[in-house]
Amino acid sequence: MTLAARDLSVANRLTDVFLDLHSGEITAICGPNGAGKSTLLQVLAGLIEPVGGTVCLNEQPLAGIAPRERARAIGYLPQTPEIAWDVPVRRLVELGRMPHGDARSGPVEAALAALDLTHLAGRRTQSLSGGETARVLLARVLAAEPRWILADEPLAALDLAHQLALLHHLRAAADAGAGVVLVLHDLALAMNHADRVVVLDGGRVAADGRCEDALDHRVIERVWNVGARWVGDPGQRALIVT
């Protein structure tokens, strides 16, 4: 299954973006502030209509797919968390089942367990810490069992242990056939945990490919304007900024 961007343009934010994303992979979208990462994710999720170009899900234009069908296929987690009402954790995670029109307990319990939230299921969301809230919001995405998981900075509010646990779970989802697309600021996390990296700069694709190629120190120097080198073995690399 593929999620493809064909010649995407969004006024002042994205220009001529071509991408072919594959299920079973974790793709990291990286780039400096204002590069268009969140915009690209929202266009891929069908939430922003591009000025030019199309997004296709399995060769079918996203704009032509019914909203509920699209919602069953693509789960989206925004960068800025928003919970307007102090609902219990379980009820919030159940919202993920809305595209399916059910509140099946199986996927909800599985999502709660995957993010170590079972013991918090009865708590009100406003009593949670920032990290717990971030996990609850991600559990809502997982409860829908989407074929594509599009998450904008899902690790930003998590402590180290929960970052690794979440990445482990996303890897399991990808191994089970889901496509995972993450906006990541931490280049080391992208290098060590993604299968593929797309680097955006000024709304254009600056690099796209295997992590070692797309996050090569020359790309980092050109896009982020900092000198950098990778140390360590594959899968355990650390970035030294010079």
Binding site: Y76, A84, M98
Partner: peptide
């Protein structure tokens, strides 16, 4: 009601959940 529930998570998430 269900669409209003989805809006609890903001307009973008509600639309991503299939809210029209």
């Amino acid at each position: 009601g269900p669409a209003l529930d989805a809006l609890t998570l903001g307009e973008a998430v509600a639309r991503s959940l299939g809210m029209n």
